[in-house]
Design a protein around this nucleic acid. Structure first.
Length: 563
RNA sequence: CGGGGAGUGGCGCAGUCUGGUAGCGCACCCGGCUGGGGGCCGGGCGGUCGCAGGUUCAAAUCCUGUCUCCCCGACCA
């Protein structure tokens, strides 16, 4: 491809509103452009990256027996009513000219299960792995960070259909193999972490996380341990507690409403305090969640323990049900107390609100002074221990997920088969997603430098950018033209900067776009009968390659050494 | 949904407080010079100032409404 004929709108300056690096560089390098909030166009160079990623995914899903197909984005709302997902806020809804209710699919469990339910009759028809690359539409409340969270995006989603749980385990393991290979081939730094299964249940889930600053997720990591902080558990360093008392003692804490203020007023560390977090569930139950003062309530864990969705109690509810906000605690309250394990498992006297204005209690002991149910309801912190090893926490982009669905969709949609004994059984399903756009964004984030993007070779828009210096009609131009033709004939994936522009502009654009290998032909190199080869990153800095019969072979050889 | 910010040429911005011919840099077009890191000179094109009402002799500027976009939070099956 010649840059003179390519739509590659590079920008010297970043879009004013861009924050994330992948957003800034994606726009500056001419890969993507925004059409509206969360709506992004892939320009030719960006689409090449996207296509290379989808091809890698296709090869690896094919390799585990996946069968590619294609299902519509526009779907009958009725289908979604059957699985109870028609009430989701993110679901785009529309109707046609006849008034029929339609939705834009956010995923394709309903559609694929509908078809499988019609076609699969016998255990002999199973197992199956079906997949497609298709646009997903989600009315996100807040799209952000360029292509990282959009309202319309392409996803590879595959679905496994098995006779039983063992079959699902096998399909799940196959996907782990394929996914590990996909992210490795794409050149990402990645982790496979244990994930939350959500309110809809399911028997297991993992997420693939690519660490980078723009990520929306946090993962807890230790040697041999990788888990989404949403579900991570670890042992905290013990709290620094004062001497125990025979009974709780009131202490005046005027105006001290926060953990910090109370700790300062009493000269105690935050860990000696109890933090009360009253919540009201969707069914109307009020519960007081209690964690250590230096810990935070984990809403995913709490939701799992409560078994339903909840929201924090309002100030009015706290005043009505418990006491003055800022001075509440688990002693002598009407509410059920859910006590975090970190507190429940460490004997001693704690400090908590007295449920009266400007008063706290010292020496409060769970069990002696209040009844409780114990559960792990806190978020892990950096430095907590797993198997004796301290964990660290990194932000990351979720680039893929795998999920054991079970019969969540097969039952409402009647996807059943007859087993060997002639008994009707629900098909056991799994679903597996990957966002190619997020892989591209993560690759940018993980590999960029001050000059721009530095693509991993496997997903670069072009393997080689050939830069010619000097004005049209010169010997440099002739040499570059013939090398370009030779590289193309040899099947090398090459972008040719043949523009009538200065060297500064060409080099700067090349570094911004980030192809792994840059070849330069100019007067200087030509005089020595060679061209210059420069790696965008990695060990090969700058090398001279002789121009002649062996040039193409030498370039190919050089490419294989690049990351 | 809550909080904050922004809409002026393709991009980045000034002008708005204090109403009076719509500006700057880059990009773009033409000519010339230059040719190994966004170079130089000259000449040009391009904007209903997000939209709709209102006030006024006069509105980018003041008032009312509305739309859009961004950031933080909530949310994220």
């Amino acid at each position: 491809m010649r840059i003179s004929q390519l739509l590659l709108p590079t920008e010297r300056e970043a879009p004013a509103d861009a924050q994330a690096l992948s957003h800034v560089l994606g726009v500056r390098a001419g890969l993507v452009r925004q059409l509206g909030a969360g709506l992004w166009t892939w320009l030719p160079a960006g689409w090449r990256v996207h296509s290379k990623i989808t091809q890698i995914i296709r090869e690896e899903i094919d390799a585990i027996g996946g069968q590619e197909m294609l299902m519509p984005v526009i779907q009958p709302r009725e289908l979604w009513a059957k699985t109870g997902r028609d009430g989701i806020d993110e679901l785009f809804s529309l109707s046609d000219r006849k008034g029929s209710d339609l939705v834009l699919a956010m995923t394709h469990e309903e559609a694929v299960t509908f078809h499988v339910s019609q076609v699969v009759r016998s255990y002999r028809d199973l197992p199956l792995i079906l997949y497609h690359f298709q646009t997903k539409a989600r009315d996100e409340p807040r799209p952000r960070a360029g292509v990282l969270r959009t309202r319309e995006f392409i996803m590879k989603d595959s679905y496994s259909f098995d006779r039983d749980q063992d079959g699902l385990e096998h399909s799940y393991q196959l996907h782990i193999q394929a996914y590990d290979r996909i992210f490795e081939r794409c050149g990402l730094e990645w982790y496979r972490v244990e994930a939350d299964v959500g309110v809809m249940g399911g028997s297991g889930a993992h997420e693939y996380m690519a660490p980078c600053p723009a990520g929306e997720n946090e993962v807890a990591l230790a040697p041999g341990y990788a888990t989404n902080v949403e579900v991570a558990s670890a042992t905290p360093p013990p709290a620094d507690l004062p001497a125990r008392l025979d009974a709780p003692a009131e202490v005046e804490t005027p105006g001290a409403k926060t953990i910090e203020q109370v700790g300062a007023a009493l000269s105690l560390p935050p860990s000696a305090l109890l933090k009360a977090f009253p919540v009201v569930t969707d069914s109307g139950r009020a519960v007081m969640a209690v964690v250590r003062g230096d810990h935070r309530v984990n809403e995913f864990k709490l939701r799992a323990v409560l078994g339903e969705q909840f929201h924090p109690a309002s100030e009015e509810q706290i005043s009505d049900l418990i006491g003055p906000p800022g001075f509440i605690g688990p002693v002598a309250t009407e509410l059920d107390v859910l006590l975090d394990l970190a507190v429940a498992e460490q004997p001693g006297g704690w400090v908590c609100g007295a449920n009266r204005p400007d008063l706290h209690l010292l020496g409060v002991e769970p069990g002696r002074d209040f009844d409780f149910e114990a559960a792990d309801i806190r978020s892990v912190e950096a430095g907590d221990l797993v198997d004796g090893q301290p964990i660290r926490i990194e932000t990351a982009i979720e680039v893929g997920n795998i999920f054991k669905l079970g019969t969540r969709y097969s039952e409402p949609l009647g996807a059943v088969f007859l087993d060997q004994d002639g008994c009707e059984q629900p098909i056991v399903m799994g679903s597996y997603g990957i966002g190619p756009a997020r892989i591209a964004a993560a690759a940018i984030e993980q590999n960029a430098d001050e000059a721009g993007i530095a693509w991993p070779r496997a997903i670069a828009p072009w393997q080689v950018e050939l830069v010619v210096l000097g004005k049209p009609g010169t010997a440099e131009r002739d040499a570059a033209e013939s090398l370009y033709a030779e590289l193309q004939d040899a099947g090398v994936d090459v972008l040719f900067d043949d523009r009538d522009a200065g060297p500064g502009e060409k080099f700067t654009d090349a570094e911004l776009l980030g192809c792994p290998l840059r070849l330069t032909i100019g007067k200087r190199s030509l005089e020595s009968g060679s061209l210059e080869a420069q790696a965008r990153r990695g060990q090969v800095e700058l090398a001279a390659v002789k121009l002649g019969d062996g040039t193409v072979a030498a370039v190919r050889e050089l490419l294989t050494t690049l990351p």
